[in-house]
């Protein structure tokens, strides 16, 4: 895999993994996977490629998406991931209350300080 693609996907994969781990602490893995499935479906109406996201009881992975990006570097991964993360956090706030969702968001902001995509506000 080229270094550029690895870098493009890698930062989102790390962010998704952090989100998955932080929310499963409060919701349990079943609910988190249900949430991921719901958001994947919703985003897939616009970006079919999001269906390449792999997730199960052990976590989340972007390996298949990285391979696809190798074939087609024009994939709008940034827009797709931002849409995914925005919807994910919106639903998470309903489940955990804004206080805990903010806690998770703050933690992610700290982890990804300087990454404009990670801290983008809607």
């Amino acid at each position: 895999m080229s270094e550029i693609i690895e870098k493009r996907i890698g930062r989102y994969e790390t962010l998704l993994k952090e989100m998955w781990a932080a929310s499963s602490k409060y919701l349990g893995t079943f609910s988190v996977n249900l949430l991921v499935e719901r958001v994947v479906w919703e985003v897939s109406l616009e970006y079919k490629e999001i269906e390449l996201l792999q997730y199960d009881q052990n976590g989340i992975s972007c390996a298949k998406m990285a391979a696809k990006l190798e074939e087609n570097p024009d994939l709008p991964v940034e827009d797709m991931f931002i849409k995914f993360i925005t919807r994910y956090v919106e639903i998470l706030a309903r489940l955990l209350g804004h206080e805990r969702a903010e806690e998770i968001k703050k933690k992610l902001d700290e982890e990804f300080a300087g990454d404009p995509a990670a801290s983008r506000e809607e």
């Binding site: 919701l27 349990g28 609910s31 249900l34 719901r38 639903i91 489940l95």
Partner: peptide, 15 residues
């Protein structure tokens, strides 16, 4: 209880 309320909010995007 947790499973029921979580899953309904996720599936139906209920407020």
């Amino acid at each position: 209880l947790e499973l029921i309320t979580n899953s309904l909010i996720i599936i139906y995007q209920a407020d």
